[in-house]
Design a binder for these strands. Structure first.
Lengths: 185, 185, 185, 185
DNA sequence: AATGAATGAGCCTTCATTCAT
DNA sequence: GATGAATGAAGGCTCATTCAT
C-alpha cells in the first residue's frame, strides 16, 4: 500500500503550484525555477522532488487551469444553460484568463498541450461542445458552430486579454453578437 | 555623400531578414542566433554586423511585418472600401500572418513593441482607424467600434491562426458577423 | 537568524579566491573565468554563484589584498614605528605584493577601485597616512610628504616588482634614501 | 630593387600610427582595431596591410616611443649632462609618458617587449647607462646605480603617472633626492 | 524530505583576422 | 592598395537539473 505523503510535502506541493502559477502568469514561463523556489520559500530541489521537470510544473499548472475551466463551465450550465456560453466568454476576459495565457506561451514554446494532456484535452473539448450545444438548444447560439470553433475563439480572447491596451468591451460585444443566431441580433 | 552599401551586404541583410522571419515565426523568438546564422549560411558575426542585437533583429522583422500590413490595408481600401475590413480580417487568417504572431511572442517575452517602434505603432493604428471608419461610412461595419477594437480583434485572430487545430472558417464567420451593423445580419 | 553557510560552500569560496588570486596575479585580469574554474576544480557556474560578476571576483581579491596590507601596516607600526615605512616599502618588493599589481591591471582595464571600494580606499589611505606620520614623528621620514605621496610610491614599486628584470636593491635604496629627512642622509 | 611605396600608403601608415598611439594611450590596448580604423578614417583591412597583427601595431608604437625617448636622452645629455637624468625623470611624469604606459599594459598582457624588440632594448639600455654614467661623472648622481636601476625607476614613474590621483611633485622629489649622491643632499 | 550548492551546456555578443569587391 | 563585410573562435553569464549534506 502506498505510504501517505507527509503533511508538509502536501503543503509544499500546493504552495509551489500556487506560487508558480502567479509567477509564470505575471512574468511568463521564462522565469528561472530558482525564482519560484525563492518566492515559495523552498529550495529548488524541493520543486524537483514534486515535479520532474520545469515543463512538468508548467503542465501541472495548465492542467489545474483547464480543470477549473471545466468546473466553471459545468456550474454556468447548471444555472443558466442559454446564457452560459456568453457568461463564459465574458469571464475569460475578466478574470483568471492569465491561467491560459500560459497555455499560449507554452504552445508557442513548442509544447503541445493537447498531446501531453490528452485526457484534459478531451474533457475540455467535451465541456466546450456541451456549452455550445446547450446554447444552441436554447436558441441563443448560432447553429453552425461547435466546440472546436469555440476553442479557437477562446484562444483569441486570451490573446486579446494578454496584450490588451485598453478596454475590451467592444471586442467582446463583437464576438458575442457574432455568436448569436442570425435572427437574434 | 554616403556611399551606397555593397551589393553582397545588401543581399546578406535581406537573406538574414527572410530566414530570421521564417525561423522565428515557426519556432518563436527563443531560437539561438546561431541557428539562424546557420540557416542563412552566414557566420553569427554577420548577423551582428547588420543588427546590433537579437532584439534589434526581431524588431526589424516586426517592423517589416507591420509595414506590409499597412500597405496591404491601403490597397484593400483603394479597391473596395466597404469590404476592405472583411478582406483584411480574412486575410490575416489565411496568409502567413505569422508576422505578428511574432509580435505576440515578442510581447510575451517582455519587449514592448509600441514603445520600441512608436512611429509604426502610430502608423498602424492610423491605418486601422481608417479601415474601420471607411467601413462605417459605407455602412458595412457597426458604428460602435474603432481602430483600437480592431487591433484587439487582430491580436485574437493571430493567436487563433498560430494555435489553429482545424479550419477557422466558423470563427472567422463569427467575427465578421459580429463586426457588421445590427441591421445587416 | 541567518543560517550559517554550508561547509563545502565556504571551502569552495576560499578555494576560488585563492586560485583566482594566483591566476589573475600571474596572468592578468584577462584570463577567462573558465580557466580559473578549471584550476579550482569547480564548474564555471560555481564561481558565479559566489561572485555575481567577474569584476566582483576581482574586486573581492583586491579587497583582500588591501586588507592584508592594512593589517600588515598596523603590525609594523606596533613593532617599530620609526622604521615601519621602510620595512613596508621593502616588503612590497619582496613578497608577492602582486596583490596590488592586480589593482594596477584592473585600473588600466577601466575599473575604478577607489570608486568601487570606497571604504577600503579610505581605510588604506588612513593606514598610509599613519605610516608616514609616525615615521615623521620619529624623525626617520622627511616631513614634506603624506600618505598620498606614499600611495604613488607604492604604485611605482608594484610596477617595478611586476616588470622586474633584475634585482631591485638599488631602486629600493634610491626610494628609501629619498624618503629620509635631509639631515639623515 | 624595391618599389617605392605609394605616397598615400606612406601617409596612411603614419596616420594609423598616430591615431593608434592616441587611442591606445587613452583607452588602453583593449580597444578594437575597428575603432582605430574608424578614427583614422581607413578600413580595418588597411591597418592589416601595414601591420600584420594587432600586436605588431602595438610594438610599432612602442618602438617609436622608445626611439623618441632615446633621442630625447641624447638631446638632454648634449645640453646639460649633469642634470640630464633629472630632467628626464621629471619629463617622464610631465609629458608623453603615456607612450609607455602602453609598454606596461603590453607587458602585463604577456608580451615581452625586450624579447620582441631586442635592438631597441639594447639601444634604450645603452642610452640609460649613458644618462646615469654622465650624471655620475658630473657628480650629480649617486655612484652605486646603473642604467638597469634607472629602468626600474622609470617603470615605477610611468605607473605612478598612469594611476595618478593627485600631484606627483612629492614622489618626484623623493626619487630625485634618492638619486643624488649622499653628499649632495 | 528538504535544502541549496554545484554542474555544465548553451546563449548572446565581441573582435582579431581574412577575403571578396 | 584600400575597403569594409564576413568569419568564427572565445568569453561572460544564465539556468535547468543533479547531488551532497
Amino acid at each position: 500500500m502506498k505510504k501517505q505523503p507527509r503533511a508538509d510535502a502536501v503543503r509544499n506541493r500546493r504552495r509551489i503550484l500556487q506560487v508558480a502559477h502567479d509567477v509564470f502568469a505575471s512574468q511568463g514561463p521564462g522565469v528561472p525555477i530558482d525564482r519560484i523556489a525563492e518566492q515559495a520559500g523552498v529550495g529548488a530541489g524541493t520543486i524537483y522532488r514534486h515535479f520532474p521537470t520545469k515543463e512538468a510544473l508548467l503542465l501541472a499548472i495548465v492542467t489545474e487551469g483547464i480543470d477549473r475551466l471545466i468546473v466553471w463551465i459545468r456550474e454556468l450550465l447548471e444555472i443558466d444553460p442559454g446564457n452560459a456560453l456568453y457568461q463564459f466568454v465574458a469571464g475569460i476576459l475578466e478574470r483568471g484568463a492569465a491561467d491560459q495565457g500560459l497555455a499560449a506561451d507554452l504552445a508557442s514554446s513548442g509544447v503541445d498541450i493537447d498531446a501531453e494532456l490528452p485526457d484534459r484535452h478531451r474533457a475540455f473539448h467535451h465541456a466546450l461542445d456541451n456549452l455550445v450545444a446547450q446554447g444552441q438548444r436554447a436558441g441563443t447560439v448560432r447553429s453552425d458552430i461547435d466546440g472546436s470553433d469555440l476553442k479557437a475563439i477562446i484562444v483569441g480572447l486570451q490573446a486579446m486579454q494578454q496584450h490588451r491596451e485598453a478596454h475590451l468591451d467592444a471586442p467582446l460585444k463583437i464576438i458575442c453578437d457574432g455568436l448569436r443566431p442570425p435572427s437574434a441580433k
